[in-house]
Design a protein around this nucleic acid. Structure first.
Lengths: 211, 211
DNA sequence: GTCTATAATGGGATAGAC
DNA sequence: GTCTATCCCATTATAGAC
C-alpha cells in the first residue's frame, strides 16, 4: 500500500532478480519468483517494466555499470609486480569461493544475453568494461612497481580475464581449489615475465612493446 | 507409424536436443521443440524418457562419453613442442569459430547441470575427462618432441582447459578473433617454457617436477 | 509401440477496481 | 500507484484408443 517511486521499484526488482538468479539459476528467475523475492505484486512488476526481457536488459546494464572487480584491486598496492599479480588473482579466487552463486549468475546472464536479440549488444560492452578495468589496474600496478609492460596492456588484460573466467568454470565444475590455485600461480609467474624495470641503471634501447 | 527401437529413439532425441540447444539455447529446448526437431510425437518422447530431466541426464552423459577434443589432437604431430602447443590451441580456436553454437551449448549445459540435483555429479566427470584427455595429449606431444614437462602434467592440462574456456567465453562475448589469437599465442609461449630436452648432452641432476 | 487428446501446471501479461 | 483477479498461452506429463 506504500507508494514507492518507479526508480526505487526498478532497482529493488533488479536486486531481487539477481538474488533469485544467484540462488536458483536464470531459468528459475520467473516474474513471479522475482516479485515474491522483492515482496511485491505481479502488477507492480509490469508497472515499471514493460516485460521480463525489459527487466533483464536493465539488470545486465546495471551489472555492467556497477561491477568493480574489487578483488583484483589489491593488485595496485605493491612494489613487486609478480607478488601483485599473484595476490590479485588469489583475491579474485577468494571472492569466487566465497560467492560462487554470484559468478555463476554472471555466466548464466552472459550466455542468456548471447541468445537474446534485445540483449545481444551487452556481452560486448560487458567484456570491454572488464578488459579496460583490468588494463587500468595493470597500468597502476606497473607504475607502482616501477616497471613497464613489454606487451600491449590490452592483450595482457584480456589474458587475465580469460584465465579468471576459465578458472571460474573449472572450479565451479569440480571444486578443486588447490588445482585452481596452482593455475593462478602459474599465470602470475607467466605474466610477471612480461615486465621490465622502468629505472634501469643502464640505457636500454629496446622497444617497450614487442613488434 | 514405423516402429523404431527404444535405443534408436533415445539417441535420435538426444541428437535433436543437442541441435535445438545449439541453435536456440537451453531454455528453448522444450520437449515439444525437441520432438519437432526429431520429427516425432510428444508421446514418443515420454515412451523412452521418464522426464525432460531424464533426457538431459542422458544428453550430458553421452557428451561426456563422446567428446574427443579432436582439435587439440594435432598437438601430437611434431618435433617442436612450442609449435605443437600453438597449433593445437589454434586448432581449437578454429573449431570454436566454425561452430560457436556447439561450444555455447556445452557451456549452457554445464551451468544447467550445476543447478540440477540430478545432474550435479556430471560437471565433475566432464572436467575430469577434459583434463585427462589433454594430459594424454601433452604426454604424447612431449614424447614426440623428445622433451619432458617440468611441472605436473595434470596442472598443465588444467591450465590449458582454463585458457580455452576463458578464450571461448571472451570470444563469444566480443568476437574479437585477433585478440583471442594473441591470448592463445601467449599461452603457448608460456607453456612451452615448462619443458626441458629429454636427451640433453650433459647430465642434468635436477628433478623433473618442481617441488 | 504409436498415436491423438487432454489433464495439470506454471508462466507472462493485462483489466479494472480502488 | 497499487492491488486482486483473470486471460491466454506454453509446457510437462499422462490417458486411452488403435
Amino acid at each position: 500500500m506504500v507508494r514507492i517511486s518507479s526508480t526505487d521499484r526498478r532497482s529493488a526488482l533488479i536486486d531481487a532478480a539477481l538474488r533469485v538468479i544467484g540462488r536458483d539459476g536464470i531459468h528459475a528467475a520467473t516474474t513471479r519468483a522475482i516479485v515474491a523475492e522483492a515482496d511485491m505484486s505481479l502488477a507492480s512488476f509490469h508497472y515499471v517494466f514493460q516485460s521480463r526481457d525489459d527487466m533483464m536488459h536493465g539488470l545486465v546494464a546495471s551489472l555492467i555499470e556497477t561491477q568493480t572487480l574489487a578483488a583484483l584491486a589489491s593488485i595496485t598496492e605493491t612494489t613487486d609486480i609478480h607478488r601483485a599479480l599473484r595476490l590479485g588473482l588469489q583475491a579474485y579466487f577468494e571472492v569466487l569461493v566465497a560467492h560462487p552463486q554470484h559468478e555463476q549468475a554472471l555466466m548464466e546472464l552472459l550466455l542468456y544475453s548471447l541468445r537474446s536479440d534485445d540483449l545481444a549488444d551487452l556481452p560486448r560492452q560487458q567484456y570491454a568494461r572488464y578488459h579496460s578495468a583490468v588494463a587500468e589496474l595493470l597500468v597502476a600496478a606497473a607504475s607502482s612497481a616501477r616497471v613497464s609492460w613489454t606487451r600491449p596492456v590490452a592483450d595482457i588484460a584480456r589474458t587475465i580475464v580469460c584465465i579468471t573466467d576459465g578458472v571460474t568454470l573449472a572450479w565451479l565444475a569440480d571444486r578443486d581449489a588447490e588445482a585452481s590455485a596452482r593455475v593462478l600461480d602459474f599465470a602470475a609467474d607467466s605474466l610477471a615475465v612480461l615486465t621490465r624495470p622502468l629505472d634501469a641503471e643502464h640505457h636500454n634501447p629496446e622497444r617497450v612493446h614487442t613488434p
